[in-house]
Design a protein around this nucleic acid. Structure first.
Length: 470
RNA sequence: CGGGAAGUGGCGCAGUUUGGCAGCGCGCAGCGUUCGGGACGCUGAGGCCGCGGGUUCAAAUCCCGCCUUCCCGACCA
Protein backbone atom coordinates (compact mmCIF):
# COMPACT_ATOMS: atom_id res chain seq x y z
CA UNK A 1 0.00 0.00 0.00
CA UNK A 2 2.74 2.42 0.94
CA UNK A 3 3.93 4.12 -2.22
CA UNK A 4 7.58 5.00 -2.51
CA UNK A 5 7.98 8.62 -1.50
CA UNK A 6 7.73 11.10 -4.34
CA UNK A 7 10.41 13.24 -2.77
CA UNK A 8 13.52 12.37 -0.80
CA UNK A 9 12.42 12.83 2.82
CA UNK A 10 13.81 15.97 4.44
CA UNK A 11 15.24 14.01 7.32
CA UNK A 12 17.18 11.78 4.96
CA UNK A 13 18.81 14.44 2.81
CA UNK A 14 17.55 18.00 3.00
CA UNK A 15 19.46 19.42 0.01
CA UNK A 16 18.21 16.52 -2.07
CA UNK A 17 14.66 17.15 -0.90
CA UNK A 18 15.05 20.78 -1.96
CA UNK A 19 16.15 19.82 -5.45
CA UNK A 20 13.45 17.18 -5.73
CA UNK A 21 10.67 19.52 -4.77
CA UNK A 22 11.86 22.21 -7.19
CA UNK A 23 11.85 19.66 -10.00
CA UNK A 24 8.61 17.90 -9.10
CA UNK A 25 6.68 21.09 -8.40
CA UNK A 26 7.96 22.40 -11.75
CA UNK A 27 9.50 25.52 -10.26
CA UNK A 28 12.82 25.74 -12.04
CA UNK A 29 15.56 24.03 -13.99
CA UNK A 30 19.26 24.67 -14.12
CA UNK A 31 20.28 26.84 -17.03
CA UNK A 32 22.91 25.72 -19.53
CA UNK A 33 25.59 27.96 -18.03
CA UNK A 34 26.75 27.16 -14.53
CA UNK A 35 24.80 29.03 -11.92
CA UNK A 36 22.01 30.15 -14.20
CA UNK A 37 18.39 29.25 -13.65
CA UNK A 38 15.37 28.73 -15.83
CA UNK A 39 12.32 29.70 -13.82
CA UNK A 40 9.33 27.69 -14.96
CA UNK A 41 5.82 29.12 -15.07
CA UNK A 42 4.71 27.91 -11.64
CA UNK A 43 7.94 29.10 -10.04
CA UNK A 44 7.66 32.40 -11.81
CA UNK A 45 4.07 32.65 -10.62
CA UNK A 46 5.36 32.54 -7.05
CA UNK A 47 7.90 35.23 -7.85
CA UNK A 48 5.31 37.40 -9.57
CA UNK A 49 3.12 37.26 -6.49
CA UNK A 50 6.08 38.24 -4.31
CA UNK A 51 6.92 41.05 -6.71
CA UNK A 52 3.38 42.37 -6.63
CA UNK A 53 3.27 42.42 -2.83
CA UNK A 54 6.72 43.99 -2.50
CA UNK A 55 6.08 46.49 -5.27
CA UNK A 56 2.87 47.73 -3.70
CA UNK A 57 4.60 48.34 -0.39
CA UNK A 58 7.61 50.01 -1.98
CA UNK A 59 5.30 52.48 -3.67
CA UNK A 60 3.45 53.04 -0.41
CA UNK A 61 6.82 53.89 1.12
CA UNK A 62 7.22 56.62 -1.46
CA UNK A 63 9.65 55.09 -3.96
CA UNK A 64 8.97 55.05 -7.69
CA UNK A 65 10.10 52.47 -10.19
CA UNK A 66 12.75 53.32 -12.76
CA UNK A 67 15.14 51.35 -14.88
CA UNK A 68 18.90 51.55 -15.09
CA UNK A 69 21.11 49.68 -17.55
CA UNK A 70 22.58 46.23 -17.26
CA UNK A 71 26.01 47.41 -18.43
CA UNK A 72 28.15 49.56 -16.21
CA UNK A 73 31.46 51.21 -17.11
CA UNK A 74 34.24 49.39 -15.26
CA UNK A 75 35.61 52.69 -14.09
CA UNK A 76 32.50 53.32 -11.96
CA UNK A 77 33.37 50.39 -9.76
CA UNK A 78 36.76 51.79 -8.91
CA UNK A 79 35.32 54.88 -7.29
CA UNK A 80 34.24 53.51 -3.92
CA UNK A 81 37.07 51.62 -2.30
CA UNK A 82 35.11 49.08 -0.25
CA UNK A 83 32.61 48.57 -3.02
CA UNK A 84 35.33 47.58 -5.52
CA UNK A 85 36.93 45.30 -3.02
CA UNK A 86 33.63 43.66 -2.16
CA UNK A 87 32.34 43.10 -5.67
CA UNK A 88 35.43 42.58 -7.81
CA UNK A 89 35.63 38.85 -7.14
CA UNK A 90 32.12 38.22 -8.40
CA UNK A 91 32.02 40.65 -11.27
CA UNK A 92 31.25 39.46 -14.82
CA UNK A 93 32.94 41.67 -17.36
CA UNK A 94 32.31 42.03 -21.08
CA UNK A 95 35.55 42.54 -22.98
CA UNK A 96 34.37 41.99 -26.53
CA UNK A 97 31.52 43.82 -28.30
CA UNK A 98 30.59 43.78 -31.95
CA UNK A 99 33.43 41.41 -32.59
CA UNK A 100 36.03 43.84 -31.28
CA UNK A 101 37.99 44.04 -28.09
CA UNK A 102 36.49 46.91 -26.08
CA UNK A 103 38.67 49.86 -25.15
CA UNK A 104 37.08 49.97 -21.75
CA UNK A 105 35.60 46.71 -20.50
CA UNK A 106 31.97 46.84 -19.42
CA UNK A 107 30.79 45.27 -16.18
CA UNK A 108 27.47 43.49 -15.91
CA UNK A 109 25.72 44.94 -12.88
CA UNK A 110 26.10 42.97 -9.67
CA UNK A 111 24.11 45.84 -8.08
CA UNK A 112 23.56 49.36 -9.31
CA UNK A 113 24.79 51.81 -6.70
CA UNK A 114 27.42 53.12 -9.05
CA UNK A 115 25.34 53.83 -12.15
CA UNK A 116 22.40 55.10 -10.18
CA UNK A 117 24.54 57.49 -8.22
CA UNK A 118 26.11 58.88 -11.33
CA UNK A 119 22.59 59.94 -12.33
CA UNK A 120 21.54 61.04 -8.89
CA UNK A 121 24.38 63.53 -9.07
CA UNK A 122 22.78 65.02 -12.20
CA UNK A 123 19.25 65.03 -10.85
CA UNK A 124 19.79 66.45 -7.41
CA UNK A 125 20.65 70.06 -6.85
CA UNK A 126 18.58 71.32 -3.95
CA UNK A 127 17.31 70.00 -0.67
CA UNK A 128 13.94 70.52 -2.32
CA UNK A 129 14.77 67.58 -4.61
CA UNK A 130 15.01 65.31 -1.57
CA UNK A 131 14.19 62.74 -0.58
CA UNK A 132 14.66 61.02 -3.91
CA UNK A 133 13.55 57.41 -3.79
CA UNK A 134 13.77 55.08 -6.78
CA UNK A 135 13.44 51.39 -7.18
CA UNK A 136 14.72 49.17 -9.97
CA UNK A 137 13.33 45.71 -10.74
CA UNK A 138 16.09 43.92 -12.57
CA UNK A 139 18.38 41.01 -13.04
CA UNK A 140 21.90 41.15 -11.69
CA UNK A 141 24.93 38.93 -12.08
CA UNK A 142 27.32 37.84 -9.38
CA UNK A 143 29.73 35.12 -10.40
CA UNK A 144 28.93 32.58 -7.72
CA UNK A 145 31.24 29.77 -6.81
CA UNK A 146 28.58 27.55 -5.34
CA UNK A 147 25.22 28.06 -6.97
CA UNK A 148 21.92 26.64 -5.73
CA UNK A 149 18.58 27.18 -7.39
CA UNK A 150 16.84 30.29 -6.04
CA UNK A 151 19.20 30.60 -3.07
CA UNK A 152 22.33 31.59 -4.86
CA UNK A 153 22.39 31.81 -8.63
CA UNK A 154 24.87 33.66 -10.75
CA UNK A 155 22.08 35.61 -12.35
CA UNK A 156 19.12 36.44 -10.19
CA UNK A 157 16.05 38.65 -10.20
CA UNK A 158 15.50 41.29 -7.56
CA UNK A 159 14.53 44.81 -6.80
CA UNK A 160 17.06 47.33 -5.67
CA UNK A 161 15.89 50.53 -4.07
CA UNK A 162 18.14 53.58 -3.88
CA UNK A 163 17.37 56.73 -1.98
CA UNK A 164 18.91 60.09 -1.18
CA UNK A 165 18.09 62.10 1.91
CA UNK A 166 19.04 65.43 3.33
CA UNK A 167 20.12 64.13 6.70
CA UNK A 168 21.66 61.11 8.33
CA UNK A 169 18.52 60.65 10.42
CA UNK A 170 16.21 60.66 7.41
CA UNK A 171 18.29 58.05 5.65
CA UNK A 172 18.53 55.89 8.76
CA UNK A 173 14.77 56.08 9.31
CA UNK A 174 14.06 55.23 5.69
CA UNK A 175 16.31 52.16 5.73
CA UNK A 176 14.35 50.97 8.75
CA UNK A 177 11.02 51.83 7.23
CA UNK A 178 11.80 49.60 4.25
CA UNK A 179 12.99 46.82 6.54
CA UNK A 180 9.87 46.90 8.67
CA UNK A 181 7.04 48.16 6.47
CA UNK A 182 8.06 46.47 3.26
CA UNK A 183 10.29 43.50 3.88
CA UNK A 184 9.27 42.18 7.27
CA UNK A 185 5.64 42.81 6.40
CA UNK A 186 5.88 40.78 3.21
CA UNK A 187 7.92 38.01 4.83
CA UNK A 188 5.53 37.51 7.72
CA UNK A 189 2.16 38.42 6.29
CA UNK A 190 2.58 37.16 2.76
CA UNK A 191 5.28 34.47 2.83
CA UNK A 192 4.37 33.40 6.37
CA UNK A 193 8.08 33.36 7.13
CA UNK A 194 8.93 34.73 10.57
CA UNK A 195 12.06 36.86 10.43
CA UNK A 196 14.54 38.18 12.92
CA UNK A 197 15.39 41.82 12.32
CA UNK A 198 18.60 43.47 13.28
CA UNK A 199 21.82 45.08 12.12
CA UNK A 200 24.68 43.03 10.74
CA UNK A 201 28.10 43.13 12.30
CA UNK A 202 30.78 45.15 10.55
CA UNK A 203 32.21 42.06 8.89
CA UNK A 204 28.84 41.07 7.42
CA UNK A 205 28.02 44.51 6.06
CA UNK A 206 27.29 45.34 2.43
CA UNK A 207 30.42 46.57 0.63
CA UNK A 208 30.26 50.32 0.96
CA UNK A 209 27.54 50.59 3.62
CA UNK A 210 27.88 52.09 7.07
CA UNK A 211 25.16 49.83 8.41
CA UNK A 212 23.30 46.81 7.05
CA UNK A 213 19.93 45.79 8.43
CA UNK A 214 18.74 42.28 7.72
CA UNK A 215 15.75 39.95 7.79
CA UNK A 216 16.92 36.52 8.85
CA UNK A 217 14.79 33.39 8.69
CA UNK A 218 15.34 29.82 9.82
CA UNK A 219 14.89 27.00 7.35
CA UNK A 220 13.57 23.56 8.33
CA UNK A 221 17.10 22.19 8.49
CA UNK A 222 18.02 24.74 11.13
CA UNK A 223 20.11 26.89 8.82
CA UNK A 224 19.66 30.62 8.45
CA UNK A 225 18.70 32.41 5.29
CA UNK A 226 19.11 36.13 4.77
CA UNK A 227 15.83 37.04 3.14
CA UNK A 228 16.44 40.72 2.56
CA UNK A 229 18.69 43.60 3.47
CA UNK A 230 18.39 47.34 3.83
CA UNK A 231 21.56 49.41 3.95
CA UNK A 232 22.48 52.80 5.28
CA UNK A 233 25.13 53.98 2.87
CA UNK A 234 26.03 57.13 4.77
CA UNK A 235 27.71 59.54 2.36
CA UNK A 236 30.15 57.01 0.91
CA UNK A 237 28.65 56.80 -2.56
CA UNK A 238 27.54 60.44 -2.52
CA UNK A 239 31.17 61.41 -2.08
CA UNK A 240 32.40 58.98 -4.70
CA UNK A 241 29.84 60.16 -7.25
CA UNK A 242 29.50 63.75 -6.20
CA UNK A 243 25.88 63.59 -5.15
CA UNK A 244 25.53 66.98 -3.54
CA UNK A 245 22.78 69.50 -2.94
CA UNK A 246 22.35 73.00 -1.66
CA UNK A 247 20.77 72.91 1.76
CA UNK A 248 18.42 75.50 3.26
CA UNK A 249 21.37 77.34 4.76
CA UNK A 250 22.99 77.67 1.36
CA UNK A 251 25.74 75.11 1.92
CA UNK A 252 26.70 72.48 -0.67
CA UNK A 253 26.49 69.11 1.15
CA UNK A 254 26.58 65.41 0.29
CA UNK A 255 23.37 63.41 0.33
CA UNK A 256 22.74 60.63 2.83
CA UNK A 257 21.70 57.44 1.14
CA UNK A 258 20.15 54.01 1.48
CA UNK A 259 19.86 50.95 -0.72
CA UNK A 260 17.83 47.82 -0.19
CA UNK A 261 16.87 44.65 -1.96
CA UNK A 262 15.02 41.37 -1.98
CA UNK A 263 15.50 38.72 -4.61
CA UNK A 264 14.35 35.42 -6.03
CA UNK A 265 16.06 33.98 -2.98
CA UNK A 266 12.77 34.62 -1.21
CA UNK A 267 11.28 31.81 -3.26
CA UNK A 268 13.90 29.44 -1.87
CA UNK A 269 13.24 30.72 1.63
CA UNK A 270 9.53 30.08 1.32
CA UNK A 271 10.17 26.57 0.01
CA UNK A 272 12.53 25.67 2.85
CA UNK A 273 10.46 27.27 5.57
CA UNK A 274 7.19 25.52 4.84
CA UNK A 275 7.83 22.56 2.59
CA UNK A 276 7.31 19.06 3.98
CA UNK A 277 7.90 15.52 2.75
CA UNK A 278 4.81 15.72 0.58
CA UNK A 279 5.91 18.87 -1.23
CA UNK A 280 5.55 22.60 -1.06
CA UNK A 281 3.17 24.28 1.29
CA UNK A 282 2.52 27.67 -0.23
CA UNK A 283 1.03 30.25 2.14
CA UNK A 284 -2.46 31.22 0.96
CA UNK A 285 -1.77 34.94 0.74
CA UNK A 286 1.14 34.24 -1.56
CA UNK A 287 -0.25 31.34 -3.54
CA UNK A 288 -0.73 31.92 -7.27
CA UNK A 289 -3.30 29.14 -7.04
CA UNK A 290 -5.10 29.30 -3.70
CA UNK A 291 -7.62 26.59 -4.33
CA UNK A 292 -8.11 23.86 -6.85
CA UNK A 293 -11.51 22.35 -7.54
CA UNK A 294 -11.03 18.75 -8.48
CA UNK A 295 -13.56 16.57 -10.25
CA UNK A 296 -13.11 13.12 -8.78
CA UNK A 297 -14.92 11.34 -11.57
CA UNK A 298 -15.80 11.85 -15.19
CA UNK A 299 -19.53 12.22 -14.69
CA UNK A 300 -21.69 15.05 -16.05
CA UNK A 301 -23.04 16.17 -12.71
CA UNK A 302 -19.60 16.14 -11.14
CA UNK A 303 -18.15 18.20 -13.97
CA UNK A 304 -21.01 20.66 -13.80
CA UNK A 305 -20.84 21.13 -10.06
CA UNK A 306 -17.06 21.55 -10.02
CA UNK A 307 -17.17 24.11 -12.81
CA UNK A 308 -19.88 26.02 -10.95
CA UNK A 309 -17.91 25.89 -7.72
CA UNK A 310 -14.75 27.14 -9.39
CA UNK A 311 -16.66 30.06 -10.87
CA UNK A 312 -18.19 30.83 -7.51
CA UNK A 313 -14.79 30.83 -5.79
CA UNK A 314 -13.35 33.07 -8.50
CA UNK A 315 -16.24 35.48 -7.89
CA UNK A 316 -15.14 35.64 -4.28
CA UNK A 317 -11.72 36.80 -5.40
CA UNK A 318 -10.09 33.44 -4.76
CA UNK A 319 -7.33 32.45 -7.17
CA UNK A 320 -8.81 29.14 -8.22
CA UNK A 321 -8.04 26.45 -10.75
CA UNK A 322 -10.43 23.83 -12.06
CA UNK A 323 -9.04 20.33 -12.45
CA UNK A 324 -11.05 18.44 -15.04
CA UNK A 325 -8.18 16.21 -16.11
CA UNK A 326 -10.31 13.12 -15.77
CA UNK A 327 -7.93 11.12 -17.94
CA UNK A 328 -5.51 11.11 -15.01
CA UNK A 329 -6.28 9.07 -11.94
CA UNK A 330 -7.63 10.88 -8.94
CA UNK A 331 -4.67 9.95 -6.79
CA UNK A 332 -2.20 11.25 -9.27
CA UNK A 333 -3.91 14.59 -9.51
CA UNK A 334 -4.27 14.92 -5.76
CA UNK A 335 -0.57 14.25 -5.36
CA UNK A 336 0.33 16.78 -8.05
CA UNK A 337 -1.50 19.59 -6.30
CA UNK A 338 -0.01 18.55 -3.02
CA UNK A 339 3.53 18.74 -4.38
CA UNK A 340 2.74 22.18 -5.77
CA UNK A 341 1.55 23.20 -2.33
CA UNK A 342 -1.85 24.57 -3.30
CA UNK A 343 -3.38 25.53 0.06
CA UNK A 344 -6.89 24.19 -0.40
CA UNK A 345 -8.33 21.42 -2.52
CA UNK A 346 -12.05 21.09 -3.10
CA UNK A 347 -12.85 17.56 -4.20
CA UNK A 348 -16.21 16.67 -5.65
CA UNK A 349 -17.30 13.16 -6.54
CA UNK A 350 -20.54 11.21 -6.72
CA UNK A 351 -20.32 10.30 -3.05
CA UNK A 352 -20.04 13.96 -2.08
CA UNK A 353 -22.93 14.93 -4.32
CA UNK A 354 -25.13 12.22 -2.85
CA UNK A 355 -24.69 13.97 0.48
CA UNK A 356 -24.90 17.44 -1.03
CA UNK A 357 -21.30 18.03 -0.08
CA UNK A 358 -17.81 18.71 -1.33
CA UNK A 359 -14.66 17.53 0.43
CA UNK A 360 -12.30 20.24 1.58
CA UNK A 361 -8.66 19.25 1.98
CA UNK A 362 -6.20 21.63 3.61
CA UNK A 363 -2.62 21.33 2.52
CA UNK A 364 -0.95 22.63 5.66
CA UNK A 365 -2.07 19.68 7.81
CA UNK A 366 -3.78 17.37 5.30
CA UNK A 367 -7.12 17.59 7.09
CA UNK A 368 -10.18 16.56 5.10
CA UNK A 369 -13.68 17.67 5.92
CA UNK A 370 -17.07 17.52 4.24
CA UNK A 371 -18.60 20.90 3.45
CA UNK A 372 -22.12 21.53 2.23
CA UNK A 373 -22.09 22.68 -1.40
CA UNK A 374 -23.70 25.99 -0.44
CA UNK A 375 -20.95 26.72 2.05
CA UNK A 376 -17.86 25.94 0.01
CA UNK A 377 -16.78 29.52 -0.67
CA UNK A 378 -17.12 30.46 2.97
CA UNK A 379 -15.24 27.37 4.05
CA UNK A 380 -12.44 27.94 1.55
CA UNK A 381 -12.01 31.53 2.67
CA UNK A 382 -11.84 30.39 6.27
CA UNK A 383 -9.34 27.66 5.39
CA UNK A 384 -7.15 30.15 3.56
CA UNK A 385 -7.14 32.40 6.62
CA UNK A 386 -6.38 29.67 9.08
CA UNK A 387 -3.83 28.06 6.77
CA UNK A 388 -1.85 31.28 6.59
CA UNK A 389 -1.94 31.71 10.35
CA UNK A 390 -1.00 28.10 10.98
CA UNK A 391 2.03 28.27 8.72
CA UNK A 392 3.37 31.35 10.47
CA UNK A 393 2.73 29.82 13.85
CA UNK A 394 4.34 26.52 12.91
CA UNK A 395 7.42 28.21 11.44
CA UNK A 396 7.76 30.46 14.47
CA UNK A 397 7.48 27.54 16.87
CA UNK A 398 10.04 25.60 14.87
CA UNK A 399 12.49 28.46 14.94
CA UNK A 400 12.03 29.11 18.63
CA UNK A 401 12.40 25.42 19.42
CA UNK A 402 15.73 25.47 17.60
CA UNK A 403 17.05 28.59 19.26
CA UNK A 404 19.00 28.48 22.49
CA UNK A 405 20.45 31.07 24.83
CA UNK A 406 24.13 30.60 25.53
CA UNK A 407 26.83 32.54 27.30
CA UNK A 408 30.03 31.73 25.43
CA UNK A 409 31.40 31.35 21.94
CA UNK A 410 32.12 27.66 22.58
CA UNK A 411 28.51 27.00 23.47
CA UNK A 412 27.41 29.04 20.47
CA UNK A 413 29.56 26.88 18.20
CA UNK A 414 27.88 23.77 19.49
CA UNK A 415 24.33 25.09 19.40
CA UNK A 416 24.84 26.92 16.11
CA UNK A 417 25.44 23.63 14.34
CA UNK A 418 21.77 22.70 14.53
CA UNK A 419 19.94 25.99 14.90
CA UNK A 420 20.31 29.49 16.23
CA UNK A 421 22.23 30.42 19.34
CA UNK A 422 21.77 33.74 21.07
CA UNK A 423 24.99 34.79 22.71
CA UNK A 424 25.96 38.10 24.29
CA UNK A 425 27.68 40.18 21.61
CA UNK A 426 30.18 41.30 24.21
CA UNK A 427 31.28 37.67 24.55
CA UNK A 428 31.86 37.39 20.79
CA UNK A 429 33.42 40.45 19.20
CA UNK A 430 35.70 40.35 16.20
CA UNK A 431 37.80 37.52 17.59
CA UNK A 432 34.73 35.49 18.42
CA UNK A 433 33.39 36.00 14.92
CA UNK A 434 36.59 34.54 13.54
CA UNK A 435 36.32 31.52 15.83
CA UNK A 436 32.68 30.96 14.85
CA UNK A 437 33.75 31.21 11.25
CA UNK A 438 36.07 28.26 11.69
CA UNK A 439 32.94 26.21 12.32
CA UNK A 440 31.02 27.70 9.40
CA UNK A 441 28.92 29.73 11.82
CA UNK A 442 28.26 33.42 11.42
CA UNK A 443 26.53 36.19 13.30
CA UNK A 444 23.23 36.58 11.48
CA UNK A 445 22.22 39.79 13.21
CA UNK A 446 22.36 41.70 16.45
CA UNK A 447 19.35 42.19 18.66
CA UNK A 448 18.37 43.49 22.03
CA UNK A 449 18.09 40.77 24.67
CA UNK A 450 14.30 40.84 24.33
CA UNK A 451 14.56 40.43 20.55
CA UNK A 452 13.95 44.11 19.96
CA UNK A 453 15.60 46.14 17.25
CA UNK A 454 18.63 48.09 18.48
CA UNK A 455 19.01 51.80 17.90
CA UNK A 456 22.55 51.11 16.80
CA UNK A 457 25.04 48.28 16.61
CA UNK A 458 27.04 50.02 19.32
CA UNK A 459 24.31 49.71 21.91
CA UNK A 460 25.48 47.91 25.07
CA UNK A 461 24.16 44.47 26.04
CA UNK A 462 23.29 43.38 22.51
CA UNK A 463 22.79 39.73 21.69
CA UNK A 464 24.29 38.09 18.61
CA UNK A 465 22.08 35.56 16.87
CA UNK A 466 24.43 33.03 15.32
CA UNK A 467 23.99 29.99 13.12
CA UNK A 468 24.98 28.25 9.95
CA UNK A 469 23.64 29.93 6.87
CA UNK A 470 22.95 29.46 3.20
C1' C B 1 38.36 28.47 -6.18
C1' G B 2 40.27 23.71 -3.28
C1' G B 3 38.70 18.34 -1.74
C1' G B 4 35.24 14.28 -3.06
C1' A B 5 31.34 11.92 -6.29
C1' A B 6 28.92 11.76 -10.93
C1' G B 7 27.24 12.69 -16.26
C1' U B 8 24.05 6.62 -20.72
C1' G B 9 16.09 8.19 -24.31
C1' G B 10 12.23 13.36 -20.40
C1' C B 11 13.54 11.31 -15.02
C1' G B 12 16.07 7.40 -12.08
C1' C B 13 19.67 3.82 -13.12
C1' A B 14 22.53 -0.97 -15.10
C1' G B 15 26.35 -1.78 -18.58
C1' U B 16 32.72 0.66 -17.99
C1' U B 17 36.62 -3.59 -13.96
C1' U B 18 38.07 -7.52 -18.77
C1' G B 19 36.80 -2.67 -25.67
C1' G B 20 32.81 -6.50 -29.64
C1' C B 21 24.40 -5.53 -31.60
C1' A B 22 22.80 0.29 -26.11
C1' G B 23 19.53 -2.06 -21.95
C1' C B 24 15.94 -1.77 -17.49
C1' G B 25 12.18 0.91 -14.43
C1' C B 26 9.23 5.20 -14.51
C1' G B 27 7.41 8.76 -17.80
C1' C B 28 5.57 9.71 -23.05
C1' A B 29 1.98 8.30 -27.61
C1' G B 30 -2.32 5.13 -29.46
C1' C B 31 -6.31 1.79 -28.09
C1' G B 32 -9.16 -0.52 -24.29
C1' U B 33 -10.51 -1.30 -19.19
C1' U B 34 -10.27 2.09 -15.04
C1' C B 35 -10.93 6.53 -11.66
C1' G B 36 -12.66 8.60 -3.56
C1' G B 37 -4.68 8.94 -2.59
C1' G B 38 0.92 8.41 -7.70
C1' A B 39 -4.36 2.50 -11.88
C1' C B 40 -3.78 -1.75 -15.40
C1' G B 41 -3.26 -4.44 -20.18
C1' C B 42 -1.67 -4.50 -25.20
C1' U B 43 0.97 -1.84 -28.99
C1' G B 44 4.57 1.90 -30.01
C1' A B 45 7.93 6.20 -30.31
C1' G B 46 12.16 8.03 -28.34
C1' G B 47 19.90 7.57 -27.82
C1' C B 48 26.12 11.41 -31.59
C1' C B 49 26.35 7.05 -24.14
C1' G B 50 28.03 15.51 -21.57
C1' C B 51 31.53 17.97 -25.46
C1' G B 52 36.24 17.80 -28.16
C1' G B 53 40.60 15.20 -29.33
C1' G B 54 43.52 10.59 -29.16
C1' U B 55 44.58 4.95 -28.99
C1' U B 56 42.35 0.66 -31.70
C1' C B 57 40.12 -3.55 -36.94
C1' A B 58 36.49 -1.92 -33.30
C1' A B 59 35.27 2.86 -27.81
C1' A B 60 29.49 4.07 -23.52
C1' U B 61 33.96 1.16 -21.99
C1' C B 62 41.05 2.89 -22.40
C1' C B 63 44.06 7.97 -22.48
C1' C B 64 44.13 13.64 -22.52
C1' G B 65 41.51 18.29 -22.29
C1' C B 66 37.05 20.93 -21.40
C1' C B 67 31.82 21.60 -19.78
C1' U B 68 27.91 20.57 -16.33
C1' U B 69 25.65 18.68 -11.78
C1' C B 70 25.76 17.11 -6.56
C1' C B 71 28.22 16.96 -1.56
C1' C B 72 31.96 19.31 1.87
C1' G B 73 34.96 23.94 2.71
C1' A B 74 36.77 29.44 1.74
C1' C B 75 33.41 34.34 -0.61
C1' C B 76 27.94 36.29 -1.28
C1' A B 77 20.75 38.85 -2.18
Amino acid sequence: MAKPPVLTPQSEDFPRWYQDVIAKAELADNGPVRGTMVIRPYGYGLWERMQAEVDRRIKAAGADNAYFPLFIPMEYFQREAEHVEGFSPELAVVTVGGGKELEEPVAIRPTSETVINSYFSKWIQSYRDLPLCVNNWSNVVRWELRPRLFLRTTEFLWQEGHTCHATYEDARDYARRILFDVYADVMVNVLAVPVLLGPKTASERFAGAINTLACEAMMRDGKALQMGTSHELGQNFAKAFDVTFLDAAGDQVHAWQTSWGVSTRMVGGMIMTHGDDRGLRVPPVLAPIQAVVLAVRDEPEVLERTAALAAELADQGIRVELDHRVDLSFGRRATDWEIKGVPVRVEVGPRDLAEGNATLVERWDGAKSPVHLDGVATAVLAALDSGQANLVREATEFRDAHTVEVATVDEAIEAGATGFARVPWSAVGTDGEARLGEHAITVRCLQRPDGGFPESADEPDLVAVVGRSY
